[in-house]
Nucleic acid binder design. Structure first.
Lengths: 110, 110
DNA sequence: ACCAAGTATCGATGTGCGTCAATATATTGA
DNA sequence: TCAATATATTGACGCACATCGATACTTGGT
């Protein structure tokens, strides 16, 4: 996975024809969401009591190994969809809804 | 690519934790959008004069071979994001914005 | 019946990436 | 300093899939 932050890249898909570079950027954004484990991580963290969750507490719910979860958390964080804060030996994550909105708005109807 | 139609599958990601099956379905939806050629096809067709376009006219703009374009049009059609109508020897495509909205709304903020 | 043009299918190839076990790194506490 | 726990990194493996050339199928016109 190339791990670029998700930023504004284009007018909505349905409003103006995408140039090649814009399509590449947008597709990279959706690729981050195109994995069920990552979607569950996003969803888990977004719905956590204080909007944040420790890596140690998301591993079990998604049913993947610790390295796999760490890998997905990195991809989400590098894409800007999560923030990561180290507190002692724990890593805490929060979702960044504005970044999700970039992708959401690219699908805005005419 | 598994080629399931994109249908409602879950509450928004940020509103309720996704179950495994929901995450799988949603991820499959985003996987369809996770390719720059498919995004450009969607965008081209959505912005065509009458909202429709012939396969013969989309091949050149996206800069891929005819078999590749045909393949992507199939994936988009099987996912329900495009409709396909055969007229004589030409295949005409239209986007189905309601299907895109299913994915858009899954990203709705709280 | 035949040919030309549009489209779909097939087979092959290379690459991207999700996954895990093993290991390394970091942090805390005794 | 040492042990324990949390997290990241590495290396390897297998599969999914984007792509193309070649070919088959389909349709309309002659």
């Amino acid at each position: 996975m190339e791990v670029q932050p998700i930023e504004y890249c284009c007018d909505p898909v349905l409003v103006e024809p995408l140039k090649e570079a814009e399509a590449e950027t947008l597709a990279a954004g959706f690729r981050v969401l195109a994995d069920p484990t990552r979607l569950r991580l996003l969803s888990l963290i977004a719905n956590a009591p204080d909007g944040e969750m420790c890596a140690c507490d998301v591993t079990a719910p998604v049913g993947r190994s610790q390295p796999t979860v760490s890998h997905h958390l990195s991809i989400l964080t590098d894409a800007g969809l999560l923030t990561r804060e180290q507190r002692g030996k724990w890593a805490w994550f929060r979702v960044v809804p504005e970044r999700l909105s970039v992708l959401r708005e690219a699908l805005t109807p005419v």
